[in-house]
C-alpha cells in the first residue's frame, strides 16, 4: 500500500543547527528544560525570549544563561558540561541532591538528550557503547531519562555504516526503559507512543523511504 505523503516538510535532510532550531520551536512556552551535553546544547541558541523557557543544569542551577565570554567567565559558574555560563535574572542555585530531585521528582517538563539507539518502545541507550575496554561513565543520563516528563532525543537517523539508530530492541546497554517520547533526526521526527511509532514529518525523503531505512513498523502522521 502506498501512502500519499503529506508529511515531507523539507527538500533536504536537516543539518545540526536546523534540527536544534526545530526542537527549540517545539518546546512549549514556559517550560522547564534540561539540555544534555553536546548536540542538545545547540537548542539553547534558538530559544526565544517570548518562549520564557527556564534552563536547568544538573550541577545545581535553574535560570542558566548563555555561555560566558570575556569578563563574565567565572570558575564558580559552570554548566553540566563544565563550560562557564551566565545567570539570568530569577536564577537560583541549589545543592546536587536538590538538583537531581528536580529531575527525579518529575518537575522538569522536557530533557533533550543524544543517543546511540532508541527502541520502538522508547528504551534509550546513550551512556555506554558496551565495548569491553571502554571506561564506563554515566553521569546524570539515567536520572534525566527517567525523571523528565518528556524525553526528546536528537541524533542522526543512521550510523556512519548506514544502520538505523531507531531499532526494535537496543543492542547497546540501556540508559532507561520506555522513557523516550520523541526522536528528532536529520531525516524525520518520530513520536513514540503506546500505539507505536509515528512519523510526524520527514526531511528530504518520503515516508516510504524512511520505512525502508528503519527496521520497525511505522505510521505516518494523519
Amino acid at each position: 500500500m502506498s501512502t500519499q505523503t503529506s508529511i515531507q516538510t523539507s527538500e533536504k535532510p536537516l543539518g545540526r543547527d536546523e534540527l536544534a532550531q526545530l526542537v527549540a520551536r517545539d518546546i512549549v512556552r514556559g517550560s522547564f528544560v534540561n539540555l544534555g551535553i553536546g548536540q542538545p546544547t545547540l537548542v539553547s541558541n534558538y530559544l526565544t525570549e517570548e518562549q520564557n523557557i527556564t534552563l536547568h543544569t544538573e550541577n545545581g542551577m535553574l535560570g542558566m544563561g548563555p555561555a560566558a565570554v570575556g569578563d563574565d567567565v567565572d570558575g564558580d559558574l559552570i554548566n553540566a558540561g563544565k563550560i562557564p555560563v551566565t545567570e539570568l535574572p530569577g536564577a537560583s542555585y541549589f545543592h546536587h541532591a536538590d538538583s537531581f530531585a528536580i529531575m527525579r521528582g518529575g518537575h522538569l517538563d522536557i530533557c533533550v538528550l543524544g543517543a546511540f539507539q532508541v527502541s520502538a518502545s522508547g528504551d534509550l541507550a546513550n551512556w555506554h557503547t558496551g565495548a569491553p575496554d571502554a571506561i564506563p561513565a554515566v553521569g546524570g543520563a539515567m536520572d534525566l531519562a527517567t525523571g523528565a516528563k518528556d524525553v526528546f532525543v536528537m541524533m542522526t537517523l543512521l550510523t556512519r555504516e548506514g544502520a538505523s539508530k531507531l531499532v526494535e530492541q537496543c543492542t547497546y546497554p540501556l540508559t532507561g526503559v520506555g522513557c523516550v517520547t520523541r526522536v528528532y533526526t536529520d531525516k524525520a521526527v518520530f513520536l513514540i507512543g503506546a500505539d507505536g511509532v509515528t512519523v510526524r514529518e520527514t526531511f528530504g525523503c518520503t515516508f516510504e523511504e524512511i520505512q525502508i531505512l528503519v527496521p520497525l513498523s511505522l505510521k505516518p502522521a494523519e
Partner: peptide, 18 residues
C-alpha cells in the same frame, strides 16, 4: 583502572547525590 589497580563503583549522578 585498565591495570586493575583501582576498584570502581559507578553510580548514576542522581543516585550518588541521593
Amino acid at each position: 583502572f585498565r591495570a586493575g589497580e583501582i576498584e570502581l563503583e559507578l553510580v548514576p549522578q542522581g543516585n550518588l547525590a541521593e
